[in-house]
Design a protein around this nucleic acid. Structure first.
Lengths: 328, 328
DNA sequence: ACCGGTACCGATACCGGTATCGAGATCAGT
DNA sequence: ACTGATCTCGATACCGGTATCGGTACCGGT
């Protein structure tokens, strides 16, 4: 048990000053090769582990990048985080994740907490933070990236796509395939709602609306999709298409349809959102908008990094990463 | 832009000493109600955000709990993290996640880095860390929990189940349902390998082995499952069961079978692992071992917390959370 | 009036690193 | 040999909080 080894111990073991030890371990300049080797060996010998806390404190800056997502239980976000991690790997910066559970209050608290660690940058989800959160963000001068949405005005940088337009585009694709009696099943979430209304607006342009819909609160799941779809299908006759707020829900419906022998996509077209890799196992069964979650995460991280490199001498960037429509 | 507000600024604004301000903000004792209100108001007024870095540094401890998982792209781990977050919420401790990509070297680096932040506790995945990593862990005196496996000797605490036994149990269930010509498709991963060999050992007890198998490296995916299953099924005739190292792979095969009209589970039994909620959309199609990821994460976090509360006066705990076998 | 106890406050000394700066040694050029 | 530049090193002063401890004010009891 090597308890509380400090730099001083390393320095003593190497027979140099604390300062030289510090420089040697950081490969800073003003140290001789001989001492670098001596100090590193000494550190290894006594099992020294640097104190990031003290170092960051002394430096007045950290290598932390705060990343805030609404949930972990929806594959989409872990994939985004994966992209962030990937882009940050080897950069010397480290992501720190926070989960809001779609709760504004919780998001505010998480951000306050993150900021109290003085992160070098911040990546968050969505553009529709409430006023108090926005004030928090505006009072800071670190690079910030908001992801997954571009319908609104970003605090700083932005990576994603227009949720409204995504819904709209899908509606137009569906309409041009001749579908007319359309149902909707979706989560009551900001971004899902934007897609819904985008979809709806395109339908309205053709003089139609949702034939029926089911909205729900809380986390979306395959089971929820199956349940609501069953309800919708058995209640409302003659639907020829159901738009789901994501692929998970659509997949639940797929299970139901396979069981009932409903012919997909001829009799009924299922439309999801996200383009989960999962769907590749069921080719042609579910139409979807394929979003590039990893790429969005990666891009967000890259923007933070470049912004950091240029020390804020850079204008806010907005990068659109269009979803790709995949019809059934 | 309120840059670099410090406690001294708050103290000045409130007309008290730095120390009183510190106490007021932390609701420490030895402060009058009047001053608490005055200080908090002042802090709000000038937009003060505490410096966790300095605070943690000053009292030589953090409220960080390091959590290390091999991947984010496999739903299982985000669910574990979700359980950890849940258990930690309101405890005053905060999880910090790290992803190893199933890479020992990377895991070592991540742990070194985490330890340099002096976390209060550590939660990691698996029991089979290499020697250098183990040394790192043994040289520390914070509570450690290893998750998701119990085949081996934990460094400290342990939450999970025997991977070997899980494979064995499933094999026995499959055998007793009369299956005989069994194939295996799986990832070359420590825990998957344990399940494979457990499964195999049970088969061996009945004088049979894998009729054929396909192993692969890298991340498992639905597509990989579909591809390998297609290969296995078309190459090897008369298989009556395929054991997959997880549900994702099995699901890929499900898609293939549905397409080819292979009658599940009569003609062919698919056996996965994890019990993803996803499978509920396809009842009776895939047998699986349902593991409680959230509960494992939650329990791991709870063990760390109680261990912290009792200040290390507690013996290492091992909690087994048995997977539940769900036949098709 | 005196005393001990309690509540509250602030000066001071750290925590473990790093930035800074001045000093000594070494070296090249004249 | 002298000058100036370069390299290497260590003493010192912080970074922004918190622990500690001594001091003051006020209280109730005798």
């Amino acid at each position: 048990m090597n308890k509380n080894k400090t730099l001083k111990d390393v320095a003593a073991a190497a027979g140099v000053s604390k300062m030289t030890a510090s420089r040697a371990l950081r490969r800073d300049k003003d140290v001789s090769e001989a001492n670098i080797e001596k100090v590193r060996q000494a550190a290894r010998d006594i099992g020294y582990i640097g104190n990031h806390l003290a170092a960051s404190f002394a430096n007045k800056r950290t290598d932390l990048i705060g990343v805030v997502v609404p949930a972990m239980t929806n594959v989409v976000f872990p994939q985004v985080l994966s992209g962030v991690s990937e882009a940050l790997a080897g950069s010397g910066f480290q992501p720190v994740f926070g989960v809001t559970d779609y709760d504004d209050e919780k998001e505010y608290e998480i951000l306050r907490n993150m900021l109290s660690w003085r992160p070098a940058g911040l990546i968050l989800t969505g553009l529709d933070q409430p006023a108090n959160t926005l004030k928090l963000l505006e009072n800071t001068d670190i690079p910030i990236v908001q992801m997954m949405d571009s319908d609104g005005s970003p605090v700083d940088n932005c990576v994603g796509f227009s949720q409204t337009l995504a819904g709209r585009d899908m509606a137009m694709a569906i309409l041009s395939s001749g579908r007319k009696r359309i149902g909707y099943i979706g989560k009551k979430d900001t971004r899902a709602a934007k897609r819904r209304s985008g979809f709806l607006s395109a339908l309205a342009d053709h003089g139609i609306g949702y034939h029926a819909e089911r909205l729900f609160d809380g986390p979306s799941s395959v089971e929820m999709g199956r349940r609501l779809a069953e309800d919708l299908i058995t209640t409302e006759r003659n639907l020829d298409c159901i738009y789901f707020s994501n692929d998970d829900l659509a997949l639940g419906c797929l299970g139901f349809c396979l069981e009932r022998g409903i012919d997909l996509p001829q009799t009924l077209t299922l439309v999801g959102f996200n383009g989960l890799e999962l769907l590749n196992a069921f080719p042609g069964k579910i139409a979807t908008s394929r979003t590039s979650r990893q790429e969005i995460g990666r891009t967000a991280a890259e923007i933070v990094l470049s912004s950091l490199e240029l020390r804020g001498q850079t204008d806010p960037k907005t990068v659109i990463i269009q979803p790709e429509i995949c019809l059934a």
